[in-house]
Design a protein around this nucleic acid. Structure first.
Lengths: 346, 346
DNA sequence: ATTTTAATTGTGTTCGAGCACATTTTAACA
DNA sequence: TGTTAAAATGTGCTCGAACACAATTAAAAT
């Protein structure tokens, strides 16, 4: 247990006053070369760790962080994020940080833009956002950057030099995991990748998952599988998928790239004679229902709660502990079946 | 954003001095009924949150926590625990807590007892330990309790009213998960539960896993499986298991209840014509090797790092933030295959 | 050499809680 | 009623860092 040095200790060792040490440490005001050298000599010799309690007690500045994510009203996937953010808030409530949540409509680009404006209006020190809309997100992040506001993202990856941090999963690998599971479930046959609802061209996450999925089967020695892709949007969803399955009687496995596996499950559950293996995403209540009755075989957990929690704490700790912001944090990709599902809610 | 009250604020509101408020808050010294009522009235009305920075700045007392776990020299399973504890140490290094690690020999009851003595000698404020030896652990915990030292455990459950906290997994459920996976892999046939090395009668964790495993198959409607149990200790391990498998040619699945699945894998890998499904525990390097060459189909991750981390932080936060100690924290039981294994090392 | 100005260095207060000690009030007793 | 003991209450310092401001020293200008 090494000695813990204070500014006063350093001042004494260097033969100057604590004011001078302070000036050296914070590079403020003018210090003579002589004093500078003497203080630096001491600083080199010892490992000075500023007392964070004392610092944050003195500092009256309150850091402000805004978190921008989709409203869970339209998509329950986002609800756990709110919980994660609130957990982070609670954990650091004694510190000088204010965390505000801003929700936008995941179906509306305009809403995303507008909410970003509102965030800008609050002029926070940092923003954590879900960059659902590629172009608009880039714009927003550039604007934040130009105002000196730190931007971090979670859930989706998005390349931009203005982004300080990303928390999420390796979606390519995520696709591979789905592939491995269906390989195990089926051994051979035809599998369809189902992209529901979102615009495939703009949804990089779907593309990445598909790439990983196909990559797995491409690398398999025996070409026992045939992989198809099926894209469908909501309004005609039910009939279209039904027809698709009927016209492709060889399909014995489905990989749903979004959290909407329950919608697919609802359809295939109506025809229990035809056993179709089904792998999807996220622990929504609807999904769990079909997981428990074994219509869905596996769910892949994207851990939105932890993503939001880590994204938030990463920023908080940067401000109050001067921690470096972790540029990329990839969370484990959890495989969920009937038996371990409920453990993930604690 | 509600106002943050200080002791001074409360004193003014109640019309007393901050000394009196302090006495009320800490129930020390004598306070007149009148003053007590007035302060409590204010306290009821507002939500006073003591400033933890100020508190820990003032308090010079250093809390001491000892963590007692098996040496990873004999069993690499324990290495991640050390990492988890060090992570906790690092995170809270600015605070007045000292965390010391004590290692014992997992194969020696005497070593466990002795290490507990050493811990007692250090007279810490709390102890976090792995209660590997049932009787001796109970004894140690009782001793700690009698000296006013808080005891928490992780990895193994152990019932005692003197234990303040347990971090671990639901082992019964863990067995069920293994069962579900083998069900999926095989659909039908004979499966053997393999208990390696440890003394089954004293290893409750093995018993619980077996119970859960059997429970799953008992609840299955179609009795498509036959479940056997096989116990073996190290010296004769190799030949015994080989003979066992040869004399039971119908066995097509194995469930190894410890982290030693690689030892089993080594044997069955020698006879690749006979395909045997294998599910085991823990992300040891040896296990991962056989997972990657698909001799092991699934590993169940017991997350020792996180267990140790949470056990430690739980105690630290109790001391510095006066948080309640969480009595039981059950971690999710992660299912690992070739594709998601490496994600768990971040 | 003396004044003025700039550069450097030191001192003292603050943040909020905790606690020792000083002071005041109340109760007890002669 | 006065004295003393006991109970209650208030005051002031401390923790370490930050920062404003005062004090000192050095350099420049007269």
């Amino acid at each position: 247990m090494e000695k813990i040095y204070t500014i006063k200790d350093i001042a004494e060792l260097a033969g100057v006053s604590k004011g001078t040490v302070d000036r050296v440490l914070h590079k403020r005001g003018k210090v003579s070369q002589d004093a500078l050298d003497r203080v630096n000599e001491v600083l080199d010799k010892i490992d000075y760790q500023p007392n964070l309690m004392a610092r944050s007690l003195k500092k009256t500045q309150i850091y402000s962080i805004c978190v921008l994510l989709p409203d869970s009203q339209n998509d329950p996937y986002w609800q756990p994020c709110i919980d994660g953010i609130n957990e982070a808030k609670k954990e650091f409530k004694s510190f000088n940080v204010k965390v505000e949540i801003f929700l936008f409509d995941a179906t509306s680009t305009a809403s995303f833009v507008e909410t970003n404006k509102a965030v800008l209006n609050a002029s926070p020190d940092a923003v954590l956002l879900v960059p659902l809309f590629h172009k608009e997100a880039i714009d927003a992040i550039e604007t934040y950057n130009s105002k000196g506001i730190i931007s971090s993202i979670f859930n989706n990856q998005l390349k931009s030099s203005s982004i300080k941090s990303f928390v999420g999963q390796d979606l390519f690998q995520s696709g591979r995991i789905a592939a491995r599971l269906l390989d195990l479930l089926l051994q051979k046959g035809t599998i369809a990748i189902i992209h529901i609802d979102e615009d495939y061209e703009n949804a990089i996450h779907m593309q990445e998952k598909e790439k990983g999925f196909r990559d797995y089967f491409d690398q398999l020695e025996n070409r026992a599988f045939e992989i198809k892709t099926f894209k469908v949007k909501h309004p005609q969803f039910k009939t279209t998928l039904k027809e698709y399955l009927e016209s492709n009687p060889t399909i014995s496995g489905l990989f749903v790239t979004t959290s909407k596996a329950y919608q697919v499950a609802k359809i295939i559950a109506k025809n229990p004679e035809r056993k179709i293996a089904l792998v999807g995403y996220d622990l929504l209540e609807n999904n769990l229902e079909y997981l428990n009755n074994k219509t869905i075989d596996f769910l892949i957990h994207q851990n939105p709660k932890r993503q939001a929690y880590l994204g938030t704490t990463n920023l908080i700790e940067h401000f109050i502990f001067e921690k470096e912001i972790t540029a990329e944090k990839l969370l484990p990709i959890d495989i969920i079946n009937t038996e371990n599902a409920k453990d993930y809610f604690l």
